[in-house]
C-alpha cells in the first residue's frame, strides 16, 4: 500500500478489466515517472473518448453522436441484421466487407458462470428492431465458442416463431476462438456459407 495520489491511481487502474494489482502498480509507476506531457496526453485521451464516443442508439456499436456510421448509411440494408457480441466484432466483420445489412451489438454473450443472463444483453432492443424495421433475416455472428453458441440458440428460439430467417455463420471459423481473430477471407466465406439454425 502506498499513500495519497499514487495509491488512488493504482486503485483506479486495478479496476480495469484484465489488470491485476501487480500490473496496476507497474502502470502507475510508469505514469508517475513518465514525461508530464505523456501523462497529460493519456488523461486527455481518456476524457475525450468518454465525452465524445457514445453507443449507437440503434445498434449498440460505438458512435460519435447518436447513430453510428453504419446506421447512418442509407445504402445499408435495414432488413438484414448481423448480431455480434461486441463492437470489436463489427470492426472484424466490416474488414471482411461482405455484409450489406446492419449490425446489432448484444454487449456480450450469456454466461451463467459470469452472471450474465439474457436480461443483461441488448436482446429486447433486438426484438424491437426486428419488429419495427421489417427485418427478414438475422445472421447470428456471436463467437464460435460455448457461450456464443448458446446465445445463438437463445436468439434463434426467440425469433423463429415470428417467421424470421435466423442463420449462423458457417463453420470453418476457429472453434472456441473469437471472431476478431478470424481472417477476412475466412470470415467472408463463413458469412457466404451461413446456414439456418
Amino acid at each position: 500500500m502506498y499513500e495519497g495520489p499514487i495509491q488512488d491511481l493504482v486503485d483506479e487502474l486495478s479496476r480495469l478489466p484484465g489488470i491485476g494489482p501487480k500490473s496496476a502498480q507497474r502502470l502507475a509507476f510508469h505514469i508517475v515517472k513518465a514525461d508530464p506531457r505523456e501523462a497529460r496526453r493519456l488523461a486527455e485521451a481518456i476524457i475525450q473518448a468518454k465525452e465524445r464516443v457514445a453507443f449507437c442508439r440503434e445498434c449498440g456499436n460505438v458512435a460519435e453522436g447518436d447513430l453510428c456510421r453504419i446506421c447512418r448509411d442509407p445504402g445499408r440494408d435495414p432488413t438484414t441484421l448481423c448480431v455480434v457480441e461486441e463492437p470489436k466484432d463489427v470492426v472484424a466483420m466490416e474488414k471482411a466487407g461482405v455484409l450489406k445489412g446492419r449490425y446489432h451489438v448484444l454487449g456480450g454473450a450469456i454466461s451463467p458462470l459470469d452472471g450474465i443472463g439474457p436480461e443483461d444483453l441488448r436482446v429486447k432492443e433486438l426484438l424491437d428492431r426486428v419488429e419495427q424495421d421489417g427485418v427478414t433475416e438475422v445472421i447470428v455472428a456471436t463467437n464460435p465458442n460455448l457461450e456464443g453458441n448458446a446465445t445463438a440458440m437463445y436468439v434463434a428460439a426467440l425469433l423463429k416463431p415470428a417467421g424470421i430467417r435466423v442463420t449462423r455463420l458457417a463453420s470453418g471459423l476457429p472453434v472456441g476462438g473469437d471472431l476478431e481473430y478470424a481472417d477476412e477471407v475466412t470470415l467472408g466465406q463463413a458469412l457466404e456459407g451461413r446456414r439456418e439454425i
Binding site: 450469456i110 439474457p118 448458446a150 440458440m153 437463445y154
Partner: peptide
C-alpha cells in the same frame, strides 16, 4: 424454468 435453459440444454446435448 430459467430463461435460456433450452440454449444450455442444446449445448449440453451436443457436447
Amino acid at each position: 424454468a430459467p430463461a435460456a435453459i433450452e440454449a444450455w440444454d442444446a449445448e449440453l446435448v451436443e457436447t
